[in-house]
Amino acid sequence: MLAELKRSWMVVFVKVRMKFEKGDEVKYISHLDMMRTFERSLRRAKLPIAFTKGFNPRPKLTFSQALPVGVTSSSEFVDVEFNEKVEIDDVICRLNKYLPRGFLVKYADFCNNDFPLHMLNCAKYIAKIAINKNSQIDIEKVISNILARKQIIIEKQSKSRKRLIDIAPLIYDIYIKEFKDEICLLCLELSIGQDGNVTPEMLISILNENLERNVSILLINREEMYLREGEKITYPL
């Protein structure tokens, strides 16, 4: 009895933050399905996951803000709690072995509760779009126009109702990174999380409303996620 008690006192929860990639193969996996995939992969990897207390124990996993379905990412985060000591390299190596192809843990480290993932409020995307070769000037104009606007009202469909929101304060930056052979790499820095969510697709449809010839999206990738406070940027890992 005493030994039991002692052991339960000694249980230390170890929290590990991982940065991972969500590639082309798995870009259609929804956030919820991805959560399940990680749970199962951790179990396959025989890693000592900690569970929530209560009637229906769940593995203790916390993910960064959901990625739109169809978008790849080089920078997603998950916090995993373990109920015994783990080696970071071992966790990365074993988890990568058991994750489906398309998911790849690139980096991990122990973490505390100082900077929970829900504080992330900004994401940077690169959108590869197909565009008419003479439209570079047009698109540059439209972009600076959008950035200059004080208010951009769009209609957002939530589960039950439509509502109007102003996305102007949620756009941090848009610029053309590269323009070559009718392919344009567009860089978008947009708000995520509690302040409001703007997806790259929403912005590209605004672009299209203002362009004579429509651009079409070839690929979108989330490059980075961070906490932005004015000009100060903090990365989660």
């Binding site: 193969e25 259609y28 995939t37 199962r40 169809g70 489906p100």
Partner: peptide, 15 residues
């Protein structure tokens, strides 16, 4: 795939 509901039905690359 981006245009259909539940595209994961058609992926074929599950674990």
């Amino acid at each position: 795939l981006p245009r259909v509901s539940k595209p994961t039905r058609y992926l074929g690359n599950e674990y």
